[in-house]
């Protein structure tokens, strides 16, 4: 499976945020999306998630040589601030989610198995989500997206506000999840990107460009990325 973006454009008034985005993402990989502040990472995600209308271009999935429209249910979009329905308990949210997706989840497990998998403590499972901590809400949100198994998973700065232990757990879960899908991970933290991602993509001056790591050690690679982001006219 591949996910292709062709000539994607997005303006805000006269400002070209996304000038001409062209890229093909391959399944089974985690892509690290790096860009400077205001480069348009969140705008790109919002466009792909159809939360913002685009001003040109298109994007689609390609499976077995066939082009397919990217339906809303094919995309999972994990926001940096976790959002969970606060009036439900963790268990109720999970139960509701599994019930409305009966058809697309072929092998549902007992609810507690999911909580165990995410290391959410038994005493927290029947608490209202409004009383969950930031990290726990994040786990809950991630759990739902993992069960939903969307073909394209967009993550906007998802690990930055988590403590080191939870962040490490999340990284492992993401690595386990990447088989058969495309994960695009936007972040400001280069070490995180290098640690977790298989490919690094830069969003710079409104275009996407891959950074080739071949023959470079980590330090050289980092310097190359920074140089690329710093340059006014990177060719």
């Amino acid at each position: 499976m591949r996910f292709t973006i062709e000539h994607l454009k997005k303006y805000f008034e006269t400002k070209e945020v996304l000038r001409d985005v062209n890229f093909t993402f391959e399944s089974g990989k985690i892509y690290g999306l790096l860009g400077r502040n205001g480069a348009g990472k969140t705008t790109l995600f919002n466009c792909l998630n159809r939360d913002l209308p685009i001003d040109g271009g298109r994007f689609y999935l390609e499976e077995d040589g066939q082009e397919k429209v990217l339906e809303p249910e094919n995309i999972g979009y994990v926001l940096s601030t976790p959002t969970v329905p606060e009036f439900l308990t963790g268990r109720e949210f999970l139960k509701f989610f599994l019930e409305i997706n009966e058809k697309s989840i072929p092998d549902p497990q007992p609810l507690d198995a999911y909580f165990d998998f995410m290391s959410i403590a038994p005493e927290d499972r029947d608490k209202l989500l409004k009383d969950y901590s930031h990290g726990m809400k994040n786990k809950m949100q991630m759990l739902i997206h993992m069960i939903a198994r969307p073909k394209l998973l967009l993550l906007d700065e998802p690990l930055t506000s988590l403590d080191v232990v939870v962040a490490e757990e999340m990284k492992q879960r993401l690595r386990a999840l990447k088989e058969g899908r495309i994960i695009i991970f936007s972040t400001h933290i280069m070490d995180l990107a290098l640690d977790l991602c298989d490919e690094i993509v830069l969003l710079n001056h409104g275009v996407l460009e891959p950074v080739d790591q071949s023959n470079l050690n980590e330090q050289e690679f980092k310097e190359k990325i920074i140089a690329a982001l710093r340059e006014e006219h990177y060719a």
Partner: peptide, 10 residues
């Protein structure tokens, strides 16, 4: 919150 989950937007 639920509108951020794809299945809810069908």
């Amino acid at each position: 919150s639920l509108l951020t989950y794809p299945c809810y937007k069908k």
